[in-house]
Write a protein that binds this DNA or RNA. Sequence first.
DNA 1: GCATTTATTCAGAATCCCTTCAGAATTGTA
DNA 2: TACAATTCTGAAGGGATTCTGAATAAATGC
Lengths: 224, 224
Amino acid sequence: MKLLIVEDEKELSKSIVAYLKQENYLCEIAPDFKTALDKTESFDYDCVLLDITLPDGNGLNVLKGLKADNKTDGVIIISAKNSIDDRIAGLNLGADDYLAKPFHLSELSARIAAVIRRRRFDGNKVLVLNELTIDTLAKTVSVNGKGVDLTRKEYDLLLYLVSNKNRVVSKNAIAEHLSGDEADVFDNFDFIYAHMKNLKKKMVQAGCEDYIKSIYGMGYKFDI
Amino acid sequence: MKLLIVEDEKELSKSIVAYLKQENYLCEIAPDFKTALDKTESFDYDCVLLDITLPDGNGLNVLKGLKADNKTDGVIIISAKNSIDDRIAGLNLGADDYLAKPFHLSELSARIAAVIRRRRFDGNKVLVLNELTIDTLAKTVSVNGKGVDLTRKEYDLLLYLVSNKNRVVSKNAIAEHLSGDEADVFDNFDFIYAHMKNLKKKMVQAGCEDYIKSIYGMGYKFDI
DNA sequence: GCATTTATTCAGAATCCCTTCAGAATTGTA
DNA sequence: TACAATTCTGAAGGGATTCTGAATAAATGC
């Protein structure tokens, strides 16, 4: 899962990233709105944390732009002001949640998880796909009730495929969702091949039907 | 353990928080029902203290909403009225306990502990997990009937893992749970490694299966 | 206030797994 | 069929992560 943190206070964004990294999120930082729009333009983040009180403009306009583009990104507004009006304005413009500073990082993390669940999995915490069960809260995967041990990348990969089930996802999209650093990914999908192979092997060994289909020249599809 | 205190009287909520912090609870305050619903939406608290006589609505409706969402939170109603009817209404709507103002903080604390125990462990004060037995009242642990001496932190750690059994818990969550205040704990999980090592060693030495699994890059899981 | 236990920090060791690579297999095209 | 492009496979290096034992700091109990 990839997040964009739009925040100018370096200290804050740093500790946010440190915390969320532990929670297995890939994070990028935009210190101002311009950078933020730039980044969201070229990539669909799973969730954007938006501080609406940055020096270079009105955050609510940025939010409007984000939502107008029909982006799939979830947005959580972070604000120093906790006025009801601001809150309502933000949520009316399509924000998925609102969090007043200061906040506990654990609460931020919980809300991010909630937003992503809502947007990607209809709010379901546990995904059941025939014999395959993915518990996104427990971060466990099981086939016919028996646990399957996956590494983080394998788990992330599976979750990404499932969240796009019955759709072809390109290797570019996969690469961007799995790799921390932006860019440099193109031209080398070897790591995807490797993870894909290991994931498929583990799933099949666990007795799961091989739902992951490789579509030559296009990408992959979780076919169910 | 994380609590939500829904209360508009600042003085009262402050002293409640001060007291409960001493008891190692993490507390958040919601001064009105709207905030309360917001917070419970995205986070499962161990227990919610709900003053049902706030300006912005009917607390019993809030309670109803809380329980309708199938939240796992325990709820203790706090009320200035001590009529039998109110009490019955509250408990009928699924509240776990009812406390009339004014109350002693020590009594509040005791009831919170009771509610959490009841909800977490289905009312069991003694947890039995195969050869492992944990008495949450006496705070003692035994394996095959023979006592195991754990330090306070080790006990807390074990109980936390057990209360999240079969789930992966992040080091962030563990750190928060063990250290109480959310300080700059991240970036240094050495103390977790140390406690974990000592706990595991003691358990295994006592003849307990090593249920605590380390999940590389994700956290730990009490796998049973 | 002192002795003892407990909690945390530290550095080096051990482990895991992510990525890369080279060669093989598969698919699509001519 | 032959060839090129793409994908798969197994193995290995190296970086990140976790473990360990010991030292230091803090807390507890007498």
